[in-house]
């Protein structure tokens, strides 16, 4: 495999990481900690929204993020033909 090919694969991978980790940061540190008071003014059923993100929502998003990452990377591996058999 030539070098440009490797570099392009790695760049796309880093771009995915940047996007996914930004979401990871926003739901936990953002919604659950830094802006928790502002969000608590909004109610989700019986939950203040910021509190919900801190004790429930962030965990659901974390799980989704990993599966989205798996899906994106499997596609990327195919595209650059670096997948395992």
């Amino acid at each position: 495999m030539n070098n440009d090919h490797r570099v392009a694969y790695w760049k796309e991978n880093l771009r995915y990481l940047l996007i996914l980790l930004t979401i990871w940061f926003l739901v936990s540190y953002g919604a659950g900690i830094l802006f928790v008071e502002q969000l608590n003014a909004i109610k989700l059923g019986g939950f203040p929204l910021g509190f919900w993100f801190a004790q429930q929502g962030s965990i659901y998003v974390f799980i989704a993020l990993i599966f989205v990452y798996v899906w994106l990377m499997n596609k990327l591996d195919q595209k650059y033909d670096v997948h395992e058999d």
Partner: peptide, 24 residues
Amino acid sequence: GYDGSVYLMGWTGGYVLLALLLAP
């Protein structure tokens, strides 16, 4: 109460780092 959230987010959010940055 709310302060307990550190354990919930802390002990789950690490798996995102693990899956994206280290494990593979």
